[in-house]
């Protein structure tokens, strides 16, 4: 069956995207990426600290991966645009995940500023993947602004709480033509599977893998769950009924 995820005109061979933050050591990242089967891998951009020895994340990401830099640290559209332009200057491609956050307690994205940044960057030729609070009107505006996909959160970043925004995400899946990638909050493979069963095009997972006791095995578990969920979605799940319905005929019983 032909079932490829397409983002910005490019075929992506895995519906699991992984983040590279919070791992106990960078040295396990290559195995995590391998185990996850992910092709798109997120990274962030930060100032170099000249007073400390620091490693470059790029040394740990396999060459065949597509880098998805985020604009974390941006508090408004202007800062997101600045970070995006810098990221592109690194030569890592034109994908960008817009992340505009000014709320430090819940790290919830600012949809309005995200729409503004999406509009500017898509006109500059970026393939824009905006992280957003699942809201239908905001998602429609992101489509108009030229987004390549829409990335609603399942729960606040790093909480591992699961698909708390399920109903809102379902509305986005039904109403928005672009791929819906559930980003943030998914804590367990079953929750990633649930998002895929609903019809999400992909999921992005970082904390749940990075903070697992065995991150490599957890990456493999997420990969299986995403495949299972996608297959279930394509198979068309059966209807939910209020009352029992026997699986065998209710005739021909022994007298």
């Amino acid at each position: 069956m032909y079932d490829k995820l397409v983002i910005g005109g490019r075929e992506i061979n895995s519906r699991l995207l992984v983040g590279t933050g919070k791992f106990p050591s960078n040295s396990i990242i290559p195995d995590v990426i391998m185990g996850s089967g992910a092709q798109i891998v997120t990274v962030a951009l930060r100032r170099i600290d000249f007073d400390s020895e620091d490693e470059n994340m790029l040394n740990y990401i396999p060459q065949n991966c597509i880098l998805l830099p985020n604009t974390s640290g941006a508090r408004n559209a202007e800062e997101a645009v600045r970070i995006a332009r810098l990221a592109r200057a690194s030569g890592c491609g034109n994908l960008i995940k817009i992340e505009v956050i000014s709320d430090n307690k819940y790290l919830l994205p600012d949809n309005q500023e995200t729409i503004k940044a999406t509009d500017i960057l898509s006109k500059e030729g970026f393939v824009v993947l905006p992280y957003m609070s699942p809201d239908l009107m905001a998602a429609k505006r992101l489509v108009d602004a030229g987004a390549a996909a829409v990335m609603p959160l399942g729960a606040p970043i790093g909480t591992n709480k699961g698909l708390k925004t399920r109903e809102m995400i379902k509305i986005l899946i039904n109403e928005i033509e672009l791929p819906i990638i559930v980003d943030a909050g998914l804590g367990k493979p079953s929750e990633a599977c649930e998002a895929m069963e609903l019809g999400a095009a992909a999921v992005l997972v970082n904390t749940a893998i990075a903070t697992a006791k065995d991150p490599v095995a957890m990456a493999e578990a997420f990969a299986l769950a995403v495949k299972a969920g996608r297959k279930a979605f394509l198979s068309g799940t059966g209807a939910v009924k209020e009352y029992a319905e026997a699986s065998s005929p209710l005739t021909g019983f022994l007298a």
């Binding site: 590279t20 930060r46 994340m57 904390t207």
Partner: peptide
């Protein structure tokens, strides 16, 4: 001058 590099992120 601002000099930046990639770090882990989600």
């Amino acid at each position: 001058l601002e000099v930046l590099r990639f770090v882990g992120g989600g």
